[in-house]
Amino acid sequence: MIILGFASSCAEPEEVDPKFVIDVPSHLGEMPVRAENPLTLGGIALGKKLFFDPSLSSNNQVSCATCHLPSLAFSDGVSLSDKGVSGEQMIRNSPALFNLAWHQGYFWEGGANDLASQAFGPLTHPDEMGSNLNEILEKLRGNTEYVNLFKENFPQGISSQSLAFALEQYQLSLISAESPYDDYITGKSILSEEEVEGLKIFTEKCGSCHEGNHFSDFKYHRNGIDSVWNYASLEDARWGRFRITFDSTDIGKYKTPSLRNITLTAPYMHDGRFQNLEEVLTHYQTQFSITEQEKSRIIKFLDTLTDEKFIQKHSQN
């Protein structure tokens, strides 16, 4: 005991709360760990506060949640939002946010390697939150509550890194795994005959990309919705994955979205061109054979992926 006391007297005591491990049901697979930014309860709570705070935007009116609404599984219900600080229309549909630790890249074309690096995109994009990082840090430093929360949760206090780390922790904590499908797959309840039949058809027709219990392979595919790409700049966002890899086979490819909560995340595709699942499947009828009856069964099944508990949990307060 004496020795312990002695040893700790020269250690640096200033450490944050113990690492927090999120309880993830085994059918999602082990949650990949972000070693550089271990989750803590305090870090997640700070990230949540920041996610909903419009003062991170240049005009103090736009927060992350402006385009990522908890009630819509953190999507926004429109094809292309114009709710950013400039009022200009975006060129991408706001992606839903859940089970993000399993993704291998962020943004539709997967250019961001981790959610912390990704966060600087929307924070600074002139059509999204339009901020300058130094302006954000100055605002945060002028707010005693934030000063204390950052100090409690990140050794370096307020910085670009801790801002991004907190936002990353909150987003990584968003786990959706309590839909009727999850209850079915874990043996807690059953699905209707039509839903089970829909699952079977879905797995056969759609499961090669929307695979496993994440309903995504997290890879990049060209799904036939476009056939011509000729943009002057190699950096044009409409090139898709090509803009990241400069590999010509990646032209027009986008990340397979998870289909969890899919009934809440319309419109669909990277540019929100399809208003409902009917339209999506009508497109896929041009790519492979799906009968009208199969189509309606698939849609019935997809409805079982809606996780009301997830929505309720994150919509409160």
Binding site: E36, N37, F107, G111, A112, N113, D114, A116, S117, Q118, A119, F120, G121, T124, H125, N132, L133, N134, L137, Q156, S159, S160, Q161, A164, F165, E168, A237, R243, I244
Partner: peptide, 22 residues
């Protein structure tokens, strides 16, 4: 170069980081 959420001279507020392609 694989992550831009870093301190010091690598802080992205130095405007030397890409956001859409880490």
């Amino acid at each position: 170069n694989s992550s831009t959420a870093q301190p010091g001279d690598l802080d992205p507020s130095n405007e030397m980081a890409w956001n859409w392609d880490t």
